[in-house]
Design a protein around this nucleic acid. Structure first.
Lengths: 167, 167
DNA sequence: TTAAACTTTCAAAAATAATTGAAAGTTTGT
DNA sequence: ACAAACTTTCAATTATTTTTGAAAGTTTAA
């Protein structure tokens, strides 16, 4: 396979993976493109490579910056802006999980807590509801924490040992 | 809050969370409904509670069964089918992560391997591409394994200890 | 074998999400 | 202050995904 073909394949794949996980395809593609670029890329070039409009590029770059995984860069003597992606993968994972936690998990937890603390009265139906949603609350809370710590865990010497033991 | 209201809130929230993670809203809502039902529910009742069509109910129940997190049940003397959800949360997480791995991560890994093993020639651009995609391959592979083991890890006494230490 | 009681399928319709492009906004240099 | 070089915004359009509903399919009981 040739470089250009490989790069395109990577960008397409990352885009598809993104949309399966609720991330807009173009956003994931821009991110992919920046991830494998060794230098900052202009909006013009992004539009050209991905064949997208200026508005689309602008909005999705903004979204990526809001997630904290793409940065603006200025080049001396150049008026236009350039963009780079966070390339450290542990950092990337950490930022994505922090954002998803903040935007999606935390609000869901809040609701779970609310609904799991209603007066259960005496019907088996209501008891089961309270029981199940309470368990779910605990579980999601725990999973959210584990994700927070995953990077740390993966780097951790003890973690590595445990991973080996568990295999 | 009253039971009915709480139940509805839970179903809606679970549905919204699902769609943010690339799972169709109705599918997540049906799953939510079954999760908090203490007995198996008929398609008729699902349609009624969620206000959806027969076709929609049928297709999404099928999808949930394909994921292995909803089961068909037959009641003696009843002609129609009833449905229940996997209620054990560790089992649920394990099945979801296994399926997502099989359907999405594994195919993506295959492509990542392909594109990361091209001849890098000598340009810095191509070298960076190979380097970054290789790192990504390793990272995704590792993350995929960690997810596989997470349940196990969470149940594990040693794991619990480590979690405490890491906090 | 027939028909009632169900479930599944899928083309068409509806709902939702993403994209465009041009006008408005901003910044910088002269 | 002006205008060139950019970026952002957002209403309208387009693409994608989901949902519907009725016809076709299946199973069961008599």
């Amino acid at each position: 396979m040739e470089f250009k073909e490989a790069k395109n394949k990577f960008v397409q794949t990352w885009g598809a993976l993104g949309s399966q996980w609720g991330i807009n395809k173009t956003m994931a593609q821009i991110h992919a493109l920046l991830m494998v670029s060794n230098e900052a890329v202009s909006m013009e070039d992004i539009m050209e490579e991905l064949q997208i409009s200026r508005g689309n590029a602008s909005m999705n770059l903004r979204a990526l910056m809001d997630w904290g995984i793409v940065y603006k860069e200025y080049k001396a003597g150049e008026r236009k802006e350039f963009f780079t992606a966070e390339k450290d993968l542990d950092e990337l994972a950490s930022k994505i999980s922090r954002e998803r936690s903040k935007r999606e998990i935390k609000p869901a937890l809040k609701i779970l807590k609310e609904v799991s603390t209603i007066e259960a009265k005496d019907s088996a139906e209501e008891k089961h509801f309270v029981d199940q949603t309470s368990k779910l609350y605990d579980f999601v809370l725990k999973a959210d924490n584990v994700l927070d710590k995953m990077t740390e865990f993966n780097e951790n010497w003890l973690g590595k040992l445990i991973l080996k033991i568990m295999k």
